[in-house]
Computed example of a mutant assay.
Amino acid sequence: MHIEIDGRPVTDESLRTPAFVNYGHFTAMQVRKGRVRGLGLHLDRLDSATRELFGSGLDGEHVRALVRHALDGAGVRDAATRVYVHRPDGDETTTVMVTVRPPAVMPEAPQSLMSVPYERPVPHIKHLGGFGQIYYGKAAQRAGFDSALLTGPGGVIAEGAATNIAFWDGTSVAWPDAPALLGTTMALIEPLLPSVRRRVALEDLPSYRAAFVTNSQGIAPVRRIDDTEFAVDAELMKTVARVYDAVPWDEI
């Protein structure tokens, strides 16, 4: 992993805040040939969350320059890149940490999800401190599932542990109308599909024909949630993939 903070190589001192302060936020991007799908959404996310958490914005051009610098420092054009925003106690300015790792792709195999009684706090922000998501995600894996599905009171479905989820009723793609993070991939493809927002609870699952999950790594079908089996709708997944593939890549 290549790490830079405010465009400089990390030191023990500069890592003190990221290591010990869990108040902050981030965005995760897949970079290919120095480009990102939905770059504007990532920059808007960082700016709005910085305003809410710290009371001032974060300039998108500054972020782009830091990401370009980190990619150049790592000597790569394809990467899984994250941008973390902190503000050390007593400081009036934020620090921006950029990490660069090898590219990642969503596994193509249909996923199995275990529902868990957990909702992320302040879910509209991609914040740090995802203990609950990690805890339940590992519990799901120990139980033989791929990941966890986060639900609220009454089994109302919100999101995956690290994904958004959508359901296909044969006519519409239904995105759960519950507090959740609006992922960039969801934000890019939702307007391009016959989408609706509606309440979806665990008891409603048998009424849906198929499901899929999305995140910055891509899209994958869902084959099972708890004991409810879903067929992989090949035509639906072709349509979703075609829509996603048509989304333009933005130069960083």
Rank of each mutant, 00 (worst) to 15 (best):
M1C: 05
I3V: 14
I3N: 02
I3T: 12
E4R: 11
D6I: 10
D6L: 08
G7A: 00
R8N: 08
D12R: 14
D12C: 03
E13M: 10
E13D: 13
E13K: 15
S14R: 12
S14E: 02
L15G: 13
L15C: 14
R16C: 11
V21H: 14
G24R: 09
A28E: 08
A28Y: 10
M29R: 09
M29N: 01
K33M: 03
K33R: 15
R37F: 07
R37H: 09
L39K: 08
H42F: 11
D44V: 03
A49Q: 04
R51Q: 13
R51C: 06
E52S: 12
E52C: 02
F54S: 00
G57S: 11
G57N: 10
D59P: 05
E61W: 09
R64G: 04
L66W: 07
L66C: 06
V67Q: 04
A70H: 03
G73L: 06
G73E: 01
V83L: 06
V83D: 00
Y84Q: 04
R87F: 09
P88S: 03
G90A: 01
E92K: 15
E92I: 11
M97D: 01
V98N: 04
V100N: 05
R101L: 09
P102Q: 01
P107I: 05
P107S: 02
A109I: 05
Q111H: 14
M114T: 00
M114Q: 12
V116C: 08
P117H: 10
Y118I: 01
E119K: 04
R120E: 01
R120Q: 07
P123W: 06
H124T: 03
I125W: 00
L128D: 01
G129Y: 07
F131K: 07
F131N: 03
G132I: 00
I134M: 11
I134E: 04
Y136V: 02
Y136P: 07
Q141R: 15
R142F: 08
R142L: 11
R142M: 09
A143G: 04
G144H: 11
F145D: 00
F145T: 03
S147V: 06
A148Y: 05
L150E: 00
T151I: 00
G152P: 10
G154H: 14
G155I: 04
A158H: 14
G160N: 09
A161I: 05
N164G: 09
N164S: 12
A166Q: 10
A166T: 08
A166C: 13
W168D: 01
G170F: 07
T171I: 05
T171S: 13
V173N: 02
A174Q: 06
W175A: 02
W175D: 00
D177Q: 15
P179Y: 08
L182N: 06
T184G: 04
T184D: 08
T184I: 15
T184W: 04
A187K: 14
I189Y: 08
I189N: 03
E190Y: 04
L192E: 13
L192A: 10
S195V: 10
S195P: 11
S195Y: 10
R198M: 11
R199Y: 02
A201K: 14
L202R: 15
E203I: 15
L205A: 10
S216C: 13
V222R: 03
V222F: 07
D226S: 11
T228F: 14
E229H: 14
D233I: 01
E235W: 04
R242S: 15
R242V: 01
D245R: 15
A246E: 13
V247F: 13
V247S: 11
V247C: 14
I252M: 12
